[in-house]
Design a protein around this nucleic acid. Sequence first.
RNA 1: GCGAAAGUAGCUCAGCUGGUAGAGCGCGACCUUGCCAAGGUCGAGGUCGCGGGUUCGAACCCCGUCUUUCGCUCCA
Length: 493
Amino acid sequence: MENKKQDTASALKDIISHAKEYGFVFPSSEIYDGLQAVYDYGQNGVELKNNLKMVWWKAMTMLNDNVVGIDASIFMHPLTWKASGHVDSFNDPMIDNKDSKKRYRADTLLEDRAAQYEAEGKEEVGKALLQKMAKSLDAGDLEAVRQLIIDENITCPISNTANWTEVRQFNLMFSTQVGAVSEDASLIYLRPETAQGIFVNFLNVQKTGRMKVPFGIAQIGKAFRNEIVARNFIFRMREFEQMEMQFFVRPGTEMEWYAAWKEVRMKFHQAIGLPASKLKFHDHEKLAHYANAAVDIEYEFPFGFKEMEGIHSRTDFDLKAHQDLSRKKQQYFDPEINENYIPYVIETSVGADRLFLAVLCNAYTEEIVGEGDQQKQRIYLNLHPAIAPIKVAVLPLVKKDGLAEKAQEINRSLKFAFNTTYDEGGAIGKRYTRQDLIGTPYCVVIDYQTMEDDTVTVRDRNTMSQERISIADLKEKLGYAVSMERIFFFFFV
RNA sequence: GCGAAAGUAGCUCAGCUGGUAGAGCGCGACCUUGCCAAGGUCGAGGUCGCGGGUUCGAACCCCGUCUUUCGCUCCA
């Protein structure tokens, strides 16, 4: 067990090192010592991430006639977050007990004490306490809140001591001001989730797109959370990217759609190459305030099974809250049953960065090749060809005798169809290895035979085997091998 | 947030009881070779995470700080 833990820790370290050394993920602002829980994608990482986003986007919008996309702003009207519940539930005064190291919500501690007074028949005392607390909280006077806890002699149930830290406001939403002059400016938030951008545009899309329920709206975008502890590389970042789809359905039919999307989303992850054995559903037992069913798709990262995607039945919570607060009807007239209603919503929400990490962890392969004295370790990224940053490397066996020119010509003929690279430096084996390390699925090699009969060899990343094919067939054969079509085909098997 | 460990070249690391930095790999150019990280020559790259302190002198000792990893904790 201990060994296994060390192994998994080093497995993540190896992946982090690899990600940095080969241009996938860099710590943010590294020359200034980095910024906690913020990372940048490098030249290969951005290609891989873009490919993942494109596969998801097409799987949602292109393959489903009734799903369309939008791109909403990160800034939203502050009332959005009031309606969604984030202002209330994302903003807590916390206090720590120094002995037990336990953290509590300061307001909950006082509310519990007030309830205790009530149970003892001292209702006025309890009420007075709550009023004092509300006054202090409204005034933002956290020291007064702490004093209340001390005056009431509230102790930690674990350590039984009153050795409290100061009260701190934990706001998981980042805020900033809009407006030139700060006194006139109003406080706005960086969105903590992308979903609300879809909900506030529900009627815009439904009307202008003549959408009929059931239909979905997909979106890819950044979201921000001021996480207290950020851990596990890019798994939990303060700035992250979500790929979300909100699917609007007739009330009462939500469970069928919930079940249907569950299966579709699980297939997606397998289609891009994640093995079924490393994926599982995890049902939520404690449901969020907006949901009546929720499940996570978890991937087995080096640090254990963790959430990669959430599928939630959000009921009509969000649209209803927006309708109430904005006083604009958020209803759909269903011609089939001649009825107006607020649709129910099934949400599928993947963390793009988490999917990236899962794919990278899964692709990272160390194996021993060769026999006896010839044995050596080989490392390569076993990425699905359709999501690999570079699809094809074009390599002249040597750079003299016109082979380099011939190779460049072939590279030019392929580069408009998919991502290619050209490399003539050093020995051929070294160039193969360079491509293995970033997951390039195919290497096209121009040798002396090419000059005679216009054929090249195509070397496969995983098997290292070579096949000789005619230059005229390259674009079509490789084009299909690296196409997203292959993923979508699997998707529907 | 608490506790533990770590931070020296792009990577992996060495650097003895304090005397102002090295190796391997990688990278670049050239020569040679020609199918799985080949050989040779030359070269680029580090104010030793950062800031103080002790000392004649600090990569090394002390304090602080930042970042990362791990364990708790937290997490819609």
